[in-house]
Each structure stands twice: as C-alpha cells, then as structure tokens.
Design a protein around this nucleic acid. Structure first.
Lengths: 150, 150
DNA sequence: AATTAAATGAGAATATTTTTCAACTAAACT
DNA sequence: AGTTTAGTTGAAAAATATTCTCATTTAATT
C-alpha cells in the first residue's frame, strides 16, 4: 500500500490495528495523518476532505467506519461542543482532558486531572459506581485571543 | 391554554419565557413536564412520545424547536453519552455537574464542583482563557447495580 | 372581543449516518 | 513472487435525523 508519510503516529496506529488483526489500509492511515497534523479538531466532512486530498476519491462511508473503529480503539476521541456540533481529535489512549477553543475548535491538553486528587466519595455515598469521567474546559486559545477584535 | 399539571417547574419555565416575551404554549409546558418527571435523560424521540401522550398529536419540529430554545434559556441541558447518543435533562440553570448511569441513562447531580477549588492556572499559563467547563462522571447508579446479574 | 406577534403542524427538503454487496487489497502463507 | 483468505472499500440505496416553509392557530395584550 501507499506509504510516504509514515511517522510515529502512523506506526502507533499500525501497531494497534495489527494486534487486533485489522488491516492498515491507505484510508485508515490517511485518517491518522489528517487528524494528527491538524491543530484543531475536525468534523467528519473535514476529515473526508483531508483524506481525499491525499488519496483522491474516498468513500464517505469508509470515513464513518474508520472513525467509529478508531474511537473504540482509542486512536481518536470524539469531542462535543456547546453549539451541538462535534469533532474528532487524535488520541494515544491516555487519560487526558482537553481545553477546547470555541473560536477555532483547537484542542489543547489540560495537564492536570483534578479528579485524580479528588475522590469519588460524594458519588459513592449516593450508591453510584464511577467507571469513568470526562472534563473539558471551553474558552479561547492564545492565538484566537490575539486575533480578537475587542 | 391547557393547564392541570402546573407545578413549580412549569411556573419556573413560564417565568423565563415571559421575561423573554415568548409564549408559554401547551407544547412547551408539556416538554417541561415530561422532562422533569423523568428520572432519566430523554432522547428527542422519547420527549416527542411523552408530549404526544399528554397533548395528542404534536409536530416533531416543535419538539426540536423547543429543545433548542430551552437549551439557550438554560431550561434543559443536552448530555452526550460515550456511545455517541445524547439526551436532554431538565435544568434550572445552576452550575451542576452530573453523574450519568450508562445502564439506564439516569442523571444525578454531583454535589461538588472540583474545579471550584482548582484554579485555572495551568490553562492560563498556556494562554488559554477559560470561559466554562464541563465535568461528567459515567458509571452505574445504585438501582442498576442492584439489578445487575453479576 | 379584537389585535398582533409568536408558535404550531404537516410535509417537503436537507443533512447525516448506516447498510448492502460486488470488487478489491493487505497480510499470511506457500 | 504467486496464491489464498479474511478484512476492506466504494457506490448507491436506504434509513435516520434535522431543518425549513408557509398557511393556520393561539397566547398574551389591549
């Protein structure tokens, strides 16, 4: 298959796919490439466009299939925005929380997990068993603040 | 217009609508009723069904329009689940975080906001201006744990 | 009761996502 | 390097989900 833009991120994805007996197709690696070279999160359509730029024609269904699979594998993360939209960002499966710029949809890692220091006592006192949590900060990134008119 | 199930939640919604010069229609109050009497979050279709049970025929477009408006007004909150679905829960505009049961989609308030005690220093050191944040705990509620087979 | 601006319903129009299936291809095995 | 095989893809159709249009209705005000 077509190579040429092989980097650590693509090798990382190849490895995960290989372990699961899944194929490292040009389409899948192109999705990895498009996502990890983007500083902002991307919609399904934007990912499709990016992949088409690399491979020429590519079916939209393949993009949907790939993203769903990648999310299960922890290769991408789906983020929901307050306006109801959503996008994908590359992920290496780590426990990371994000700061999301509402202006450019840029995604930045939030270095600390405040829940780590916190315990789940108040949840558990209500009989709730916590399996996972998600934290997101919304606002404006440095670049967008500079460009802002106000 | 049709009354009969007027309670504090409906009066609360009426007041917000009135202040904005919007009408308290039977459809809107029925959405409030359906949502606040449900212990779990509801999909658009479930809300539509619930409203139809109260009012008879009701257009789906009205449900969509109402939910969008209610979200802007802080009367409902849209929650996204790890499986990609989403649902709505009644809200009174307060800063509350939720514990979401993955089994029944029940929504419970998480009493403390860990971000309150935390500061945004690490975000701000990256030049990011934080406007809002969202925290969600996912897991299993007490009721679903009891019913679980394992 | 009359007025008016806002809201609704029904269905058409869009948009989004999933499914189907024949053709294709990466990976493993000669 | 060629064969085999199971997994994948593309294209189009199908299924879902969401938004829009506009004539009719209604809540709120006078």
């Amino acid at each position: 298959m077509l190579r040429g833009f092989e980097c650590e991120h693509e090798l990382y994805a190849r490895e995960i796919l290989r372990k699961k007996g899944l194929k490292s197709t040009a389409q899948r690696l192109a999705v990895v490439h498009v996502l990890h070279t983007s500083e902002k999160s991307l919609s399904v359509g934007e990912i499709h466009d990016g992949v088409k730029k690399i491979l020429g024609t590519t079916g939209l269904a393949t993009i949907y299939r790939t993203l769903e699979m990648f999310e299960d594998l922890g290769i991408v993360k789906r983020l929901h925005f307050p306006d109801g939209g959503y996008g994908y960002t590359f992920s290496q499966g780590e426990h990371v929380h994000h700061m999301i710029c509402l202006a450019c949809r840029g995604v930045f890692d939030f270095p600390e997990c405040p829940i780590k220091s916190l315990d789940y006592t108040s949840a558990e006192s209500q009989g709730f068993y916590v399996e996972d949590h998600s934290i997101q900060l919304f606002g404006q990134c440095g670049k967008c603040r500079e460009q802002a008119v106000c």
